[in-house]
Design a protein around this nucleic acid. Structure first.
Length: 542
RNA sequence: GCGGCUGUAGCUCAAUAGGACAGAGCAUCGGACUUCUAAUCCGAGGGUUGUGGGUUCGAGUCCCGCCAGCCGCGCCA
């Protein structure tokens, strides 16, 4: 917020001089001040003057602004700004009066966020967990700062995999009934398959014993789908992921979108037949081979239905579609961009977020996750073991592009090794301050005595609070939630330090107590908002 | 072989679209509870940013080569 203000002041001065070039206003190491800019360094080649001389010009422009305590030139030509205490206190007052208006988030476009999309063929994995949390947190943040967000999960209920699952269930069904039907090659071997088979038995007895045809397949598919969807829902609920919508792949076939897309591509001469299959001319748009849309057995590839899905997203009127995928899908990107181009959809409509994988560790030991053998640790088991708060925090806390090492022992530990507790503890600690104040008969009054706040550590806390909006903007811009958890840890740390050094509730000095409680109240408020956005509890007690 | 991501302190990670002496947490070592929650705080040590070049006032960041790890290169999704 303050940064933006400095930026725009600088920019207007620059334009007065008839120049326009890129410069940054950043938050430097504390010793240099609150904010700093490289405008003089970046401008050297335009002004054709030494940076320090240019800096001097800008510094003078700031000399009469009460917002700053100090504006100085340093090093090769950086300009450092030290914000005045009055300004910080003013900010705090405005924040306490109405945080939403001080952030001034404007209304923005509608966005379709797709994530957690999975083959409904088995329990959600740890990998899905990371994706779901990234998507959920990004969705929360985007919505918070003004986007009209729809969180959507795509259910691949029409492909080969779901057929394989149906067949696997049927095999188990026969096995239970006494016939040794083998599970198909590449079929599903997990325990849940047996559970689904048992359900069919309890409803239909041996009606489909040794009988396999399209009608039977449909029945088993339906049972599998219902069962797996229930499993998904219960896991998603456990981890607090809320979707606005579930979009079924099969609906694209039913409502004619697939046909529509094929027609458009055909009219543009972008598809052709070869070896009994229908191909899309991917190579015309990107550096990739042509891809099959319809297999020679007449069934659709995932690529085709995904094109149709995104065509549908566009037709539904979304300004942007953000897809969150595991990094193993990166080969899917070029062909999707090609398809969007082919359909005349604007290039920036589709944005991909690819997240790296998760390695599960127990201390130093890597926990093996083998999908084939059905031995993987499911997301469900993970949540049961470490709890939803820790699971969410851990999934959100590193850059999406960084391989995540998820240490089960660390996530479970209730000590200072665990960042989740560190942040939550700060919140709980503040809550207890208010109880304590009340017990000691100090009447906390909102906005009272704020002028008594003046120490460095108090200003540092207010400054951190003032950065809340730009952190959220950054999460949205870079599409990675870890900036938020990072910020929360900084706020928590600054508060713990402040708490250790200052007596906040002091019956000997009620006005000062009130001032400090106001500050604590504001800190608690950003912690609580932030934790809520990450989707974890902001406890009153721990 | 081709393509994507990654490589930073013993470990896990940051580094704000090229900026100041590369920062946190954990671990290690040393301190702080008769005082609002010690799930906390303070201090110390710890680095040739995988490697070799290049671009420039300035590179962990950009370009080229090499090495290592993960992933992808299906009429799977």
């Amino acid at each position: 917020m303050i940064r933006r203000e400095i930026q725009s002041i600088l920019k207007s001065h620059l334009m007065e001089l008839g120049y326009e070039y890129d410069f940054v206003v950043e938050i430097p190491e504390e010793q240099f001040g609150d904010f700093s800019t490289n405008i003089a360094l970046a401008g050297a080649k335009y002004f054709k003057k030494p940076p320090r001389e240019i800096a001097k010009y800008f510094v003078e422009k700031f000399s009469d602004r009460p917002m700053f305590k100090e504006v100085t030139i340093a090093g090769p030509g950086f300009i450092n700004f030290k914000v005045s205490n009055e300004f910080y206190r003013d900010f705090l007052i405005k924040f306490m009066q109405d945080p939403r208006s001080i952030w001034n988030f404007k209304k923005r476009e509608n966005v379709l966020l797709e994530y957690g999309s999975a083959n409904p063929t088995g329990p959600l994995t740890i990998g899905h967990g990371r994706q779901v949390v990234i998507g959920d947190v990004l969705g929360n943040v985007l919505r918070y700062i003004g986007y009209d967000v729809t969180k959507e999960m795509y259910l691949n209920d029409a492909g080969r995999q779901i057929k394989l699952l149906a067949k696997s269930v049927w095999a188990r069904y026969n096995q239970i009934l006494g016939f040794d039907e083998p599970i198909p090659e590449d079929g599903y071997k997990g325990k849940y398959v047996i559970n689904i088979a048992k359900r069919v038995i309890s409803d239909h007895n041996d009606r489909y014993f040794k009988i396999w045809n399209e009608d039977v397949e449909r029945v088993f598919k339906e049972y599998a789908l219902v069962e797996i969807t229930n499993m998904f829902n219960s896991t998603l609920e456990k981890i607090g992921a809320q979707f606005d919508n579930v979009f079924k792949e099969s609906s694209l076939i039913e409502d004619g979108t697939i046909r529509e897309v094929l027609t458009i591509l055909e009219q543009k001469d972008l598809i052709y037949e070869q070896d009994g299959a229908i191909w899309f001319r991917t190579s015309r748009f990107v550096n990739d081979n042509d891809k099959v849309l319809i297999k020679n057995d007449g069934s659709y590839t995932y690529f085709l239905t995904d094109i149709a899905y995104h065509y549908r997203k566009y037709k539904r009127g979304f300004f942007t579609a953000i897809d969150i995928f595991g990094s193993d899908h990166h080969g899917h990107l070029p062909r999707m961009y090609a398809a969007m181009k082919a359909l005349g959809i604007p290039e920036d409509f589709l944005i991909f977020v690819l997240h790296q994988f998760v390695t599960l560790k127990r201390g130093n030991e890597v926990v093996k996750m083998s999908t084939r053998a059905g031995e993987f640790v499911t997301l469900d088991e993970l949540i049961d073991e470490v709890g939803s708060d820790a699971a969410r925090y851990f999934f959100a806390m590193v850059d999406v592009n960084t391989h995540l090492n998820f240490d089960l022992e660390l996530a479970k530990s209730k000590t200072d090794e665990n960042p989740v507790f560190y942040v939550q503890y700060a919140h709980a600690r503040i809550s207890s301050l208010f109880e304590n104040a009340q017990a000691k008969g100090i009447n906390f009054t909102l906005l009272d005595s704020i002028e008594l706040l003046e120490s460095e550590s108090e200003m540092r806390l207010i400054k951190l609070i003032s950065l809340f909006d730009e952190i959220l903007e950054k999460v949205a811009e870079r599409l990675s939630p870890h900036y938020l958890t990072d910020y929360l840890e900084k706020v928590a740390s600054a508060f713990h330090k402040y708490y250790a050094e200052n007596k906040i509730v002091d019956v000997e000095n009620v006005p000062l107590s009130n001032a400090r409680l106001n500050l604590a109240y504001a800190v608690k408020s950003v912690l609580s908002e932030g934790l809520t956005l990450v989707g974890i509890n902001a406890p009153q007690r721990m």
